[in-house]
């Protein structure tokens, strides 16, 4: 296998008061504790865990949207942690993020065409005309039409908006995208469409995803590898098939048992089934 797209080691982030003269050791919360993983080109790492496990924090840390306290982030052959501001900003053309709630992750006062074309303003010298032409191509690629270009976010549905967010993320042709619960705000039928779109785009362009989700059924659909987080720590990681079939850690088994539609006693995931999400039960 070639160089990994993303290689993270010892990633740590704590919150709370800084030590001062009076309190040397204030209470600090460790949100992310010595997390490390790799993602190969064109592969998807599913990051699962309960709420508050630190999944989203990891997603933001690997893009340095939050500054890590410790650890190395090797993204596309660059040491992200040591990157100066300007280079970090330029890096965002190659590595970006799709957020959970498309209703709030798009500026309500921006037309869809401007929202999709915006990254091009920051990363290319394209003229306005070229930018909008590229945006239109991208909007069509994610399954929307030219009519949507002239709309405001409030005039569209959640599924459509998440397509817009995907178009916006993809317009600079990135090699890596953090998907932070990208379908959690959508209803089940739309979830499958968006997941399929992400899958198709990955095959088409060889993008790597860090796919953050609490929904194991979704992760099973899209992830090649899965990492399980709890209380800031990485408990277990491995190929998705192996992890779903033979989880090693007790917590992973608990998570799998908690998938709706299975009885609590079903300790082992039967696996092997490949129906799309939403048809599980």
């Amino acid at each position: 296998m070639s160089e990994p797209t993303l290689s993270v080691r010892g990633l740590t982030k704590t919150y709370g008061a800084r030590p001062t003269l009076l309190r040397r050791d204030p209470h600090r919360l460790t949100a992310v504790d010595e997390v490390g993983f790799e993602i190969a080109p064109g592969q998807t790492l599913g990051l699962v865990g309960e709420s508050g496990a630190g999944k989203s924090t990891v997603g933001r840390l690997v893009l340095r949207l939050i500054e890590p306290d410790a650890g190395t982030i090797d993204l596309l052959g660059t040491d992200l942690a040591a990157l100066p501001r300007g280079d970090l900003r330029r890096m965002r053309a190659r590595a970006t993020m799709i957020f959970q709630d498309p209703y709030t992750s798009l500026n309500p006062r921006m037309l869809i065409k401007d929202a999709v074309a915006e990254p091009l303003i920051m990363h290319t010298d394209d003229s306005r005309r070229v930018r909008h032409a590229k945006a239109l191509d991208m909007v069509r690629r994610v399954g929307l039409t030219a009519a949507h270009m002239e709309r405001y976010p409030y005039e569209m549905s959640g599924g459509q908006l998440q397509r817009v967010a995907i178009a916006r993320a993809l317009i600079t042709d990135p090699a890596f995208i953090v998907c932070d619960e990208p379908v959690a705000a959508l209803d089940v039928s739309t979830q499958a469409q968006v997941i399929n779109l992400l899958n198709d785009l990955q095959q088409e362009r060889g993008i790597s995803y860090l796919f953050i989700s609490h929904d194991l059924r979704l992760v099973r659909l899209i992830a090649d590898e899965v990492a399980v987080m709890r209380r800031g720590r990485l408990l277990e990681k491995g190929p998705a098939v192996r992890l779903f079939d033979a989880p090693e850690h007790a917590y992973t088994r608990e998570l799998l048992a908690a998938i709706p539609g299975r009885t609590p006693r079903a300790r082992r995931f039967t696996g092997g089934r490949s129906e799309p999400v939403g048809h599980e039960r």
Binding site: L63, L65, R89, R90, M91, R92, A93, T96, M97, F99, D101, T104, S105, L106, N107, P108, R109, M110, E118, P119, I121, M122, H123, A165, R168, A169, T172
Partner: peptide, 26 residues
């Protein structure tokens, strides 16, 4: 603290652009 501001940062917008195009209209 709006998510679309973080989204703008994730897309590589400069602080100047965020202030001018995202904060000021709000």
């Amino acid at each position: 603290s709006e998510l679309y501001i973080e989204s703008a940062r994730a897309s590589g917008c400069t602080s100047w652009r965020i202030l001018w195009r995202h904060i000021l209209p709000a």
